[in-house]
Each structure stands twice: as structure tokens, then as C-alpha cells.
Amino acid sequence: MLREFTCIMCPQGCDISVELDGTTITSITGNKCAKGEAYVTQEIENPMRNIATSVLIDGGELPLASVRLSNVIPKDRIFDVMAEIRRVELPAPVHEGDVVIHDVLGLGADVIITKDVDVA
């Protein structure tokens, strides 16, 4: 089976073709650097993602504060992590760098505030 990717690891944006035999990579072509090969290998074997979203703030000058993960998580766990984040409501104030959820779902990533929200 042939799968096509556009590499996001450098500005070249190589169009990379990957030939698979089941789940085994048999060839990778089109990458102009080693980063492209590493990128598509990870995408096939263990795709990882980061999340940027927001949490509710009670009594803040803004109703929401932006958050992100401190590390990537497995792609197939995004909806589980988002469910945990949606349950969070924090009292104002919150500050950039505050940890909202430590080691969310045991995945080795913290949910952290990325923007200060002061009291209204």
C-alpha cells in the first residue's frame, strides 16, 4: 500500500511516498533530508500530537485562558485528554506557566496555562 505525506519538519515541505507491506515500511522516497524519513516513520509507527485549547476561568477579565501540553501525546489519546481538559474550571487569576493538570492521564505531559488572566 502506498501512503503520501507532506513533511512538516522543515521549510522544504517535501512530498514523501511511503510503501507499506501491512504495517511494515518497505520504502520511503521523496524526502530531501533525514528529518523527513524520521517524520513519516513516526507518523506510521507511533503518531504523536500536541494540543492547544482553552479552559474556563471563573471571575476573570476573560472567560477563558489558553492552555497547551508540555509534551506530545499519542494521537489516539487526544479525545481522552480533551475530555479531561474540558472538566477544568479555574478561579482567576491564572498565570502563564501554571500547571493545570500534572501528567494528564499518565501520558507524561502537563496541561499548562499560556496566557495570564487577571481578576475582573
Results as ranks from 00 to 15, higher is better:
V111Q: 04
R68D: 09
E37D: 12
R49V: 14
G13A: 09
S27K: 09
G30P: 12
D21I: 03
E37T: 12
N71L: 04
N31A: 13
L2F: 08
R3H: 02
V81Q: 06
V67N: 04
L105M: 11
D58I: 15
G106C: 10
R68Q: 00
I73T: 06
L69G: 05
N46M: 03
E89H: 15
V104L: 06
I51T: 08
R87Y: 00
F5E: 02
I57S: 13
P63D: 14
L90S: 06
K115M: 15
G13D: 07
G36T: 09
E45Q: 08
P11Y: 11
T6W: 00
I51F: 06
G30I: 00
E37K: 06
M1Q: 08
C10F: 09
C10D: 15
A83F: 14
L20V: 01
D76M: 02
G97Q: 06
I51L: 11
V119C: 00
E84L: 06
P11A: 13
G13Q: 14
H102R: 15
R49D: 07
K115P: 01
D58Q: 13
S27R: 09
L20Y: 01
A65M: 05
D110C: 07
N50P: 09
L20H: 03
G97V: 03
D118L: 13
E84M: 09
C33G: 10
V117H: 06
K32F: 15
M82D: 07
G97D: 05
P74R: 08
S66D: 14
T26D: 11
T26N: 05
P93V: 04
I112V: 11
G108V: 05
E43F: 02
L56S: 10
I78Y: 10
L20C: 01
M82G: 08
R86K: 14
I25W: 06
V119L: 08
H95C: 09
V72R: 13
V119T: 11
A65D: 06
T26M: 05
G22K: 02
A52M: 08
N46L: 03
G108N: 07
L69Y: 04
A109W: 12
L62N: 13
K75H: 11
N71G: 03
V117L: 08
E45C: 01
V55T: 09
T23E: 14
L20M: 09
V88F: 05
Q42N: 08
I101C: 04
T29M: 12
N50I: 00
P91N: 13
P93C: 06
T24M: 11
A65E: 09
T23N: 06
T114K: 07
V104W: 13
D80E: 13
D98H: 06
N31M: 05
T23Y: 03
I101F: 10
V119F: 12
T53D: 00
